[in-house]
């Protein structure tokens, strides 16, 4: 048996990838392989979490992450409860912790939380008895997105180690970038962060990444380009150039794509702004992994719910 099969998962919560070891990350990816198989069966369901209750507590908008967690929980035979910030007691002024404690008091086993405040998942984990899975907390981390991105890269290249990965766009505000960065560096990939100085502080170098402000400088040397979404909600701020200017300097245009490695793999966490950070021809082309990311996201979330659900209190 290999060392990996001997590895034991001991994390009751998944709060971020920063705290996980390289072996932990590989273990989730390997576990996800088995769950991917479940989705290919005619009966796409296993009884692993039968009788358990998973709550989706989304205090921020989400389509694919919420749907993905819901489907993942259903395929594990868990009962799933949807809770959103809007139209709930949160809009009546209840605090996050009180809301969560009330949900927990109903006998919940796993709470999946998305919140605009960095550290929200950690706060919950400290006060709750059930498992907490972070589905995105402010600009801090989005661990399942990071894991599914790595899974998709590993599926494409057969390895993570030695890959050169560019993450491009609004890095400073991106939890996706941070989760990817932590996991990729742990598994031996080289990470190049690309963006305008206003959205990519030099301090990211301390996290082990190369920081580049000129996309064209590195476009020809990377194996993977992960394009981040232009976050329109921040576009008015002085940090952000105009949309046209952003596309010109940091968009994955057809022209720029021609200068990439022949087998470059293009990724995007979605939802994408076609024609702004990524050209439609590329997003829909054969080198795009965007829909594979979504498919793999389901397997990763099944693996995560299964693993945290196995760790006893």
């Amino acid at each position: 048996m290999t060392a990996e099969t001997q590895h034991r998962w001991t994390h009751k919560h998944l709060l971020g990838l920063e705290q996980l070891s390289a072996d932990d990350i590989r273990f989730v990816l390997d576990t996800a392989d088995s769950f991917k198989e479940v989705s290919t069966r005619s009966i796409k369901k296993v009884p692993a979490l039968r009788g358990r209750v998973v709550v989706n507590a989304f205090f921020e908008d989400s389509t694919r992450t919420r749907t993905s967690f819901t489907l993942a929980a259903q395929r594990l035979s868990a009962d799933i409860l949807d809770f959103s910030g809007k139209g709930s007691s949160v809009s009546k002024g209840e605090t996050l912790i009180d809301t969560a404690r009330n949900i927990e008091a109903m006998g919940v086993d796993i709470i999946v939380i998305r919140h605009s405040a960095a550290g929200a998942a950690l706060q919950l984990a400290k006060t709750m008895k059930c498992s907490v899975v972070n589905a995105g907390d402010g600009a801090h981390e989005h661990p399942t997105q990071g894991l599914l991105d790595l899974y998709t890269m590993r599926e494409r290249f057969g390895r993570i180690e030695g890959l050169k990965v560019a993450i491009v766009g609004d890095i400073a505000n991106s939890r996706v970038a941070r989760s990817n960065l932590f996991a990729l560096t742990k598994l031996g990939a080289e990470v190049i962060l690309v963006g305008p100085p206003t959205l990519l502080p030099k301090s990211f170098e301390q996290l082990g990444a190369r920081v580049v402000h000129n996309f064209d400088e590195i476009v020809g040397e990377v194996d993977v380009i992960n394009m981040l979404r232009v976050q329109f909600e921040r576009i008015k701020s002085s940090q952000f150039p105009s949309v046209r200017e952003f596309t010109r300097f940091f968009g994955l245009t057809w022209d720029r794509f021609q200068r990439c490695k022949k087998d470059v793999f293009v990724m995007h966490p979605g939802p994408m702004n076609r024609g702004i950070e990524i050209s439609s021809d590329i997003a829909d082309g054969p080198q795009s992994g965007i829909l594979q990311q979504v498919t793999n996201g389901l397997a990763i979330r099944m693996a995560v719910l299964f693993l945290v659900g196995q760790v006893l209190v």
Binding site: H7, T31, D33, V46, A48, F306, Q310
Partner: peptide
């Protein structure tokens, strides 16, 4: 067949080794 996901004693035996794909 990997039967891990069908076991009735998952919660009693704690963390298990890697779940392998069923083929």
């Amino acid at each position: 067949l990997d039967i891990t996901l069908y076991r009735d004693d998952l919660s009693e035996i704690g963390p298990r080794p890697l779940v392998r794909p069923t083929q």
